[in-house]
Structures are given as structure tokens and as C-alpha cells.
Amino acid sequence: DRIFMTRTEALEFLLKAHQTAVDKIGHPSHKQTPADHAAIEALDRLLLDVRARRVDQFQINASAAQIIVTD
């Protein structure tokens, strides 16, 4: 599946995904793992790359739809 978004929409989408990941590892019942921190770092890099126009398409994980940034 493909989803087309403007750059602004894609950045909002990534910010929400980032916040969800941060909230998940901050929850008291969740045991933090290196994979959790790696996922947040990957989202940080992706946010910067989309914002800087170095990336025009991405996929958060293998089961997610491919996001295509349109400007």
C-alpha cells in the first residue's frame, strides 16, 4: 500500500509516531530495551531527513504502508 502526503503531513505523522514511541518507553509498566531507543533514534533521523528534503518516501516498519511525500 502507498499513502501520498504533503511534506507537512508527513512531518506531523512522524512527530506523532515519535511521541508514541517516547510515551511507550516512558510508561512505568514497559521495560526499556535497546531496540526501543534505536527506534526513536531512527525516527529522529527520518524526521530530519524528511524536513531537509533528503527523503521523499519512507516506511516506518515492514508491515506499514509506504509513505510518499509530495510537494
Rank of each mutant, 00 (worst) to 15 (best):
I67P: 00
F13Y: 15
A21Q: 08
P28F: 02
Q66K: 11
A21S: 04
R7C: 04
Q59L: 06
Q66H: 12
R53T: 04
A64N: 09
H18D: 00
V22E: 04
H37T: 14
Q59T: 08
D1A: 01
D44Y: 15
L46H: 01
S29Q: 10
R54V: 12
P28M: 07
T20W: 06
D36H: 05
D49K: 03
R7I: 12
Q32D: 12
I40C: 04
E9P: 00
V50Q: 00
A64H: 08
L43R: 00
A10I: 02
E41W: 03
D49E: 13
A42F: 14
H30R: 08
L15R: 14
A42P: 01
F4N: 04
S63F: 11
H27P: 08
A65Y: 10
Q59Y: 12
L43M: 05
T70Y: 09
V22I: 12
A39M: 15
Q66W: 15
I25Q: 06
N61P: 10
A39T: 12
D71H: 15
E41N: 07
V50L: 05
R45F: 04
R54M: 07
K24Y: 06
A21W: 11
K16L: 12
H18T: 05
F4E: 06
G26I: 11
R7S: 04
K16T: 08
F58S: 00
R53N: 12
Q32P: 15
V69A: 02
I25C: 04
R45P: 00
T6G: 04
E41A: 14
T20R: 13
H37D: 09
H18C: 06
V69H: 01
H27S: 14
D1Y: 01
L14E: 00
T20F: 09
K24A: 12
A21C: 05
L46T: 02
D49M: 07
T33E: 09
D71E: 08
Q19L: 06
T20E: 15
K24P: 03
A35R: 07
T33I: 05
A64T: 13
V69N: 01
R45L: 08
D44E: 15
E41M: 06
I3E: 03
R2L: 14
R53P: 01
A52W: 08
L14C: 01
D49T: 02
D56E: 06
D36R: 03
I25M: 12
F13C: 05
F58D: 00
T70Q: 11
L14W: 00
G26K: 15
I60R: 01
K31P: 10
P28S: 13
H27A: 12
M5Q: 01
I40M: 08
I40K: 04
A17C: 06
E9K: 05
R2V: 15
D1Q: 02
Q57H: 14
A21F: 12
D71V: 09
D49C: 05
F58C: 01
A62L: 11
A62T: 11
D36K: 04
L48W: 04
D44T: 15
L14Q: 00
H30Y: 12
H37I: 14
A39R: 09
S63C: 08
A35G: 11
H30M: 07
D49Q: 07
A17M: 13
Q66D: 04
I40E: 02
Q57R: 14
E9C: 06
E9S: 04
F4G: 02
T8F: 08
D49R: 03
A52S: 11
A10P: 00
Q66F: 13
D1E: 13
A42K: 13
T6C: 04
L14P: 00
V22M: 13
I60Y: 03
I3Q: 05
I67Y: 06
A17T: 06
G26R: 14
V22D: 02
A38D: 10
N61I: 07
R45Q: 14
I40H: 05
Q57I: 13
D44W: 15
H27K: 12
H37E: 11
R7F: 12
T20G: 08
A21H: 07
A17P: 00
T70N: 08
V55A: 04
I3N: 03
S63M: 12
I60K: 01
Q57N: 11
I67N: 01
H37P: 04
R2P: 13
A39P: 03
A62K: 11
L48H: 15
T20P: 01
A38V: 09
L15H: 13
N61Y: 09
L14K: 00
F4R: 06
